[in-house]
Amino acid sequence: MSVTPVPLLSVTEIVKRFAGITALSDVSLRVETGEAVGLIGPNGAGKTTLFNCLLGILRPDGGRVQLDGHDITGWPVYRRARSGFGRTFQRIELFAGMTVVEHFLVAARARRGDGRLWKDVVGLDRPRPQDREEAERTLELLGLTDVANRSVEALSLGRGRLVEVGRALMTEPKLLLLDEPSSGLDRSETAELTETLEVVRRERGTAILLVEHDVEMVQRFATRLYVLDFGTLIAEGPTRSVMSDPAVRRAYLGESGEGEPGVGEAV
């Protein structure tokens, strides 16, 4: 008698069409607790569409999304967030006019659910001491302590992205979805970010699903990969074996499969 454990995230046969074009056809993937998974594919492969279907920004035309065994396919964005999804954005989305630590505190507050007006009125819904401690710890983990009280407009892109990571972490996510976290960062910033994410995964046990362009970063970070091309999965499995898959090489490099170094050879 074998027990099959329920995966943290399980996506089954997602279909998404836009005005006759099939952007995703029968894509399935799963992420286990604490795992680092990468989703790669050339431009226009459907990565962002899949991502938006997972997060509830787009509604898939078919298939299911399950978190911890619960079907969340029809849930709105905010409800998914409360049940364990954290995310960052490709084009940074921060709350203008708030400081870094305020971002963290409002996220901690949002984790506890809707604000009740009467609680505001009697002053019950202020940040709690444990929220502040939690924010301190997250600031330290991400190396943002020195800019805690700085307005986010003054931060560099790299640090802004870390604020996004921290804001997501403050909601205690089970799964962190990162949308092209390396876009706009230089090599050293990317390396730093990868290291920090590795620490987050180890220390907090947060599973991470990475949608990424930067193949080098994915290889360094993810233990398992899914490769999307023209809306279908063309490969999946441990990072090393996927990267040497001829189908993947073809998708990335064209039919010849020659030229650009790096894919398949690195690591």
Binding site: P76, Y78, A81, R82, G86, F89, L94, R111, A168
Partner: peptide, 10 residues
């Protein structure tokens, strides 16, 4: 500040 980010934290 950002509607989509606000939703993403619940």
């Amino acid at each position: 500040g950002s509607e989509i980010a606000a939703q993403s934290i619940g």
